[in-house]
Amino acid sequence: MLRLVVLVSGSGTNFSDLLERTRAGSVPAEIIAVGADRECTGLDIARAAGIPTFVEPFTSPRAEWSARVADRIEAFEPDLVVLSGFMRLLSPEAVARLSPALLNTHPAYLPEFPGAHGVRDALAAGVAQTGASVIVVDAGVDTGPILAQERIAVEDDDDESSLHDRIKPVERELLARVITDIAEGAIDLHEVGARTPKTQEPS
Rank of each mutant, 00 (worst) to 15 (best):
A124R: 15
E184K: 13
R177E: 15
V134W: 04
F86N: 01
L147I: 10
S60K: 05
E171Y: 04
G131L: 02
L80C: 10
I32G: 02
A29G: 09
E39M: 12
I51R: 01
G85Q: 07
T22F: 08
S99Y: 04
Q200S: 14
F113Y: 14
T41S: 15
N14D: 13
P100R: 09
I135K: 02
H164S: 14
L98S: 05
T22Y: 09
R72H: 13
V178S: 00
G185W: 09
V81G: 05
V178T: 07
R62D: 04
T13G: 13
A94H: 00
I167F: 03
S66M: 02
Y109T: 00
G42M: 03
I146W: 00
V34D: 05
A176K: 06
F113W: 11
A29L: 04
I45L: 05
P100G: 09
A48F: 08
P52I: 01
A96V: 11
R72S: 12
A67F: 04
A122N: 03
V34E: 04
A48K: 14
E74W: 09
A48V: 05
D156Q: 14
E150A: 14
E39V: 13
P107T: 08
D138R: 10
A33S: 13
T41D: 14
G35K: 01
S26P: 07
P202D: 04
A176V: 01
P57R: 03
P92F: 00
R97G: 12
S84V: 08
G35M: 07
A148I: 10
R166A: 08
E171F: 00
G50E: 09
I152H: 03
A24N: 15
D121R: 09
N104C: 05
R195Y: 11
P28G: 10
S66E: 00
T41K: 15
A101P: 11
R172W: 02
V95I: 12
A29H: 01
D159P: 09
N104F: 01
L18G: 06
V154C: 03
A29K: 06
D157M: 12
D17Y: 13
G85C: 10
I135A: 02
A128Q: 15
E191M: 14
G25W: 01
E191W: 13
P52T: 07
F76V: 06
A24L: 13
A183H: 05
G131E: 02
L123H: 07
V81N: 03
A33H: 06
S66D: 02
I167R: 00
I31E: 09
G144P: 05
L18H: 05
L43Q: 00
F15K: 03
D159Y: 11
A33D: 08
D156C: 10
V170T: 12
V137S: 01
E74L: 15
I45A: 03
L43M: 09
A148L: 12
I187Y: 10
S161C: 13
P28F: 05
L110E: 05
E39H: 14
A46P: 00
V6H: 07
R166P: 07
R68G: 11
P145R: 02
H164Q: 12
G50F: 09
D79Y: 06
K198N: 14
L19Q: 01
E77P: 01
V137I: 12
K198L: 15
D188H: 12
A46F: 02
T13E: 14
V69W: 10
V81P: 02
L147D: 03
D188I: 11
D159C: 12
R97L: 12
D138K: 06
P107N: 07
T180H: 06
L103T: 07
V137K: 06
R172A: 08
